[in-house]
Amino acid sequence: MIAAIGLVVGIVAGLFLEPTVPLWLQPYLPIAVVAALDAVFGGLRALLDGIFDDKVFVVSFVANVLVAALIVYLGDQLGVGSQLSTGVVVVLGIRIFSNAAAIRRHLFSA
């Protein structure tokens, strides 16, 4: 219950406060979103598997976002930013996809 309220509060806060993203942070926002989605889908699957743990979820969410942003930042400094972004998106995309497939199997048993 508290969790659902938290999500709603987060969405509402994002909508109404409209935090302006500083310019230097903007390139990392899309990759951070993909990383966050990966954590969210992982958490959902764990929930359906019955092994959900809030600490693991929060830590994996924060770590995913930070590491993804860090990889892109490092890539930008080395001049391979777009390639590294592609790599991160591919890896996280595959994970999101297979987690979504597991969730689907749970929900529809198909």
Partner: peptide, 17 residues
Amino acid sequence: GWLLAAGLIAVGVLLTT
């Protein structure tokens, strides 16, 4: 669920932003 709620607030803010 405080920790989870905090995490989900972060998720919501990030996605809407």
